[in-house]
Structures are given as structure tokens and as C-alpha cells.
Design a binder for these strands. Structure first.
Length: 281
DNA sequence: AGGTGGACCCGAACGC
DNA sequence: TGCGTTCGGGTCCACC
């Protein structure tokens, strides 16, 4: 459930050997929402015959680079997932939204229960503008320093939790890893983002990268039915320190994990070791 | 301009 | 047991 950077990276890794170098022989888009406002048949026709050069990732987007120079951007949102099918027979799936037949006879299917996910076909040269408008830097890239995180937070009065979910702060961070990073750095989710001093930003920077790396090492977190394209589950959920642990003991200080709504999203934290922001009087 | 809240969607979880 | 209601999650968009 809810693929964030580590889950999308796990999905990307699994898609690489199946997709790279393959030609798209037949593309069926079964749900018009997937490509809206563009007609699904037109997008399917445009994809047919093209070849996959590379499968990459930016933030939570899977970026499929095609030999025509175009890019297919897939955003899984809440419940999107890919499946690889070696032999040609596909079992029934009421939530299947697209099927891609490759030139080795295998199929890649896309399923999405909630239908929030999107497939966007960008013309050559459009990628940078499209992503640049929406995403900030990749938090795991070399060159993503504590200073860059501090620059993104400076002057912001929004809660740090909301600032972390802003994809322009650090691309790919979602609700789970934001909460885990804040717990690790001992920062209350409601603290104004701009109020963190350089030392605290440094702690957050280190904790955020550690949480994301750990998530990738663990092949993502499997809640409910998230699976990578080969059907494998992740194990990051076993390592959650706060996410989904309301009422359970903090693993660090023996406080009790609480739930708070910040910017309309549930936030789990330990009120004992993530101190309350000092109210202005 | 930055921040906030609603819309989108639907299965799961919850309340009676 | 069964029904209706609420919830959540990422992103976009309207509004303040």
C-alpha cells in the first residue's frame, strides 16, 4: 500500500530486466482514467511499436524511456502495481487497468484498485520541464546535502511534516518515511519547518536518508497488498518505529506512540522523545 | 505567495 | 448478520 521512494525503486529494479531492450508489441489500456484527459486508445496506439531503452525513477514516478525519445511516466499513487507474466496466459483480475505485450511473448500488467494512478506519455524534451515543476532534488543522490534540505525549509511556517511531504522539498518522501525520519531525528511533526536549527536539520537529513535506504534494502514495506512486479513482499513494515503503532511503546524511550492529524494526514510520533513545539505566547 | 482544505476513488474498518 | 458511514492516501486545484 502507498508506494513511496523505496517501494517505487524496488518496482523499478524488478521491471528493468523484463522491460529494458524490449519492444512494446501490443498495448491495451482498459481504464480511461489512467490516461485522462487523453483517450486511452490514442495513448496505446502511440506506445505500440516503441522500444524501452531504460527504466528509471524520479521521486515516486517510474520513468520509462523509449527509443523514440519519448517518456512514459507512471505514477502509482495509492494502489497502483505492476505484475510480470512470463507465459502468455493471464488470470482474471477485475482491477487490471492495462496490459503490455512485449516482443519476447511476456506480458506486463498494471493493476490499480482505487484508480488514482496515472500514465503520462511525454514527447521528447518534455520530461525535464514536467518533473522540474513538480519535484525537488532526489534525497538519496550524492550532492543532496543537509544544507540543501535546510535551504528548502528556510522561512517556511508550515509544519515540518507537511514540508517533508511537499515533493519539492525532497522527491519521493511520503507519509510513512516522513514519520519514521521525524521520529529518528526527535522532531515533533508540528514544528514549523523554518524553526529547525542547522544541527537539527542535519539530524533530519541523516535520518531521512537512512530511513529511505533502509526501505530500499528491505524491498519496501508491505501493508495489505503491496507487492513488487514479481509478486514479492517487502519487509520494511517490521522495522517501523512509529508508523501505524498508535498506543504501542516507543522503542527508544518507553513513551506511548500517538496519532495526530497534520495537514489532513495521520502522523504517528512519540510525544515523549519528539518534543512539543513551544507555543508562541 | 505560501498555506490549507476539498476532490478524486473504493475497499477496509468501524458503528449501530 | 447486515447495513450505512467513515477513513486514508498523493496530487491537483481553488481559495484565503
Amino acid at each position: 500500500l502507498v508506494p513511496e521512494l523505496p517501494e517505487v525503486e524496488t518496482i523499478r529494479s524488478a521491471l528493468v530486466p523484463a522491460l529494458e531492450g524490449r519492444q512494446l508489441e501490443r498495448v491495451s489500456i482498459l481504464d480511461p482514467r489512467l490516461t485522462a484527459p487523453y483517450p486511452p486508445d490514442a495513448v496505446a496506439a502511440a506506445l505500440t511499436g516503441d522500444r524501452v531503452v531504460r527504466v528509471g525513477r524520479r521521486g515516486k514516478y517510474v520513468v520509462v524511456e523509449l527509443s523514440s525519445g519519448r517518456h512514459l511516466l507512471v505514477h502509482l499513487r495509492m494502489t497502483g502495481s505492476f505484475r510480470l507474466h512470463r507465459n502468455g496466459s493471464l488470470e482474471e483480475d477485475p482491477y487490471r487497468r492495462a496490459v503490455v505485450r512485449l516482443d519476447d511473448g511476456s506480458d506486463v500488467t498494471y493493476r490499480d484498485v482505487r484508480r488514482f494512478g496515472t500514465w503520462t506519455l511525454l514527447e521528447e524534451g518534455e520530461l525535464e520541464l514536467y518533473l522540474g515543476k513538480r519535484l525537488g532534488p532526489e534525497p538519496l543522490e550524492r550532492g543532496y546535502t543537509s544544507r540543501r534540505l535546510g535551504d528548502a525549509l528556510r522561512g517556511r511556517r508550515a509544519p515540518i511534516k507537511s514540508a517533508l511531504l511537499d515533493q519539492r522539498t525532497a522527491a519521493g518522501v511520503g507519509n510513512i518515511y516522513a514519520d519514521e525520519a521525524l521520529w529518528c531525528a526527535r522532531i515533533h511533526p508540528l514544528r514549523p519547518a523554518g524553526s529547525l536549527d542547522a544541527v537539527t536539520v542535519g539530524r533530519l537529513h541523516r535520518c531521512l536518508r537512512a530511513a529511505l535506504r533502509r526501505g530500499i534494502d528491505r524491498q519496501g514495506a508491505t501493508l495489505r497488498d503491496y507487492r513488487d512486479p514479481t509478486g514479492a513482499a517487502g519487509s520494511m513494515q517490521d522495522e517501523f518505529k512509529v508508523y501505524g503503532r498508535r498506543g504501542e511503546p516507543c522503542r527508544r524511550c518507553r513513551g506511548t506512540i500517538e496519532r495526530l492529524v497534520v495537514g489532513g494526514r495521520s502522523s504517528f510520533y512519540c510525544p515523549r522523545c519528539q518534543r512539543e513545539p513551544v507555543p508562541k505566547t
